[in-house]
Design a protein around this nucleic acid. Structure first.
Length: 130
DNA sequence: TTGTTGACCTCTT
DNA sequence: CAAGAGGCCAACA
């Protein structure tokens, strides 16, 4: 069935109408990001079949700190490879430090070689849950 | 309850 | 090609 692009968790007939479904889907995908790789909000949203809801992905990440198991939110950047969410970590440099510790170069709040480090969820997940 | 605000993206002038 | 506007939906005031 062709999923509409509006009301993400409302057209998920296979799941209860819990408003948190979208968030958990986001967390699930973020946790799948391999070590040393990064992805973008839009890619995650597109993988979930709602490319226009990329903004909600950001909201999901906002709450990701309170969620277990651990969500590697530092591996999610915006489409330009910019660390747009570094301010929401406990320290402004934590995101950059984490990425560096995984071998990702960061320069001027931007991921170096973003194209090479980019990990497309749709490629790995394929038709997961769709 | 209505209104504003987001760690964004895409389409349209 | 650059700049602007629209859109998505949950949280918060």
């Amino acid at each position: 069935m062709p999923a509409k692009k509006t009301a993400i968790n409302k057209n998920r007939s296979d799941l209860p109408p819990t408003p948190y479904t979208f968030f958990e889907d986001v967390y699930a995908i973020v946790r799948l990001i391999p070590y040393g790789r990064v992805t973008s909000y839009g890619a995650i949203a597109a993988c979930l079949g709602a490319r226009s809801s990329a903004r909600m992905v950001g909201w999901a990440m906002n709450a990701s700190h309170t969620v277990l198991p651990y969500v590697p939110a530092h591996r999610v950047v915006n489409r330009d490879g910019i660390l747009s969410g570094k301010h929401h970590f406990s320290t402004p440099t934590e995101m950059e430090e984490l990425l560096r510790s995984e071998g990702i170069e960061v320069r001027d709040n931007q991921v170096v070689d973003f194209d090479q480090k980019f990990w497309d969820p749709a490629q790995e997940v394929g038709g997961w849950r769709l």
